[in-house]
């Protein structure tokens, strides 16, 4: 206990690791962050006074593939953690790379989607849909990008042999963040893309 402050890897009052608790608190705070952004999107859903409107732009099959890539990346993340917990550094490196690549695919898909929408006349300034859509999904994309940076940093550090079985917590924390960002996308995908107000509602 006495050394917990100094070194961070000894017994704590709750038994939870300090860094893990920190990550959970951070993610709980992020819930309010994305909650506020999603609330703004939903509030303004039918308020755009000019087009283009969501149903004219959304390409559901394309975005579904993107969402699927992100979902699969959660599986590879789990495999990376399982690998290092067994002490298999090699397998962890492969799964970390796979996760980062899937994340990269997702972000590229989003970049492509943004470009398409822009070509069809949707910008931040166009209407409330453009404003709320780009800001909400943009912040999510930024979170995925940070996640990719974290994964690649872990990969780089592991090449120096600095991530062994005893350091698996580092991978676990990255995983918690990654899964959270993934879950947020499930919520956004459902609320923004899939459940669109039908014609005549409101």
């Amino acid at each position: 206990m006495s050394q917990a402050a100094a070194t961070g890897h000894l017994e704590t009052s709750t038994g939870l690791d300090n860094r893990k608790l920190l990550m959970w608190l951070f993610l709980s705070s992020e819930c309010l962050f994305f909650g506020s952004l999603i609330a703004a999107y939903l509030l303004y859903r039918d308020s755009s006074v000019t087009g283009p409107y969501p149903d004219e732009l959304f390409d559901i099959p394309f975005t579904s593939v993107s969402a699927f890539q992100l979902l699969v990346s959660s599986v590879t993340m789990v495999l990376a953690l399982a690998a290092i917990q067994r002490g298999n550094v090699r397998a962890m490196q492969i799964w970390l790379l796979a996760t980062a690549l899937l994340g990269l695919l997702f972000v590229s898909g989003q970049a492509y989607e943004f470009t398409q929408f822009y070509r069809e006349g949707l910008t931040l300034e166009t209407n409330l849909f453009g404003t709320t859509f780009f800001v909400l999904t943009g912040f999510h994309g930024a979170h995925v990008t940070v996640g990719i940076l974290i994964l690649m940093s872990l990969f780089a550090v592991s090449l120096q042999g600095r991530i062994q079985k005893k350091d698996s917590l580092n991978v676990e924390l990255a995983g918690l963040y990654w899964h959270f960002v993934d879950i947020v996308w499930i919520v956004i995908f459902t609320l923004v893309y899939l459940i669109q107000p039908g014609a005549g509602s409101n």
């Binding site: 703004a40 303004y44 300034e125 209407n127 409330l128 404003t131 709320t132 800001v135």
Partner: peptide, 17 residues
């Protein structure tokens, strides 16, 4: 975003509240 990039969150002209 409203001020720096001309978004419409609080712009009544575009339906913002």
């Amino acid at each position: 975003f409203d001020r720096l990039f001309d978004a419409n969150f609080f712009n009544p002209d575009k339906g913002g509240n």
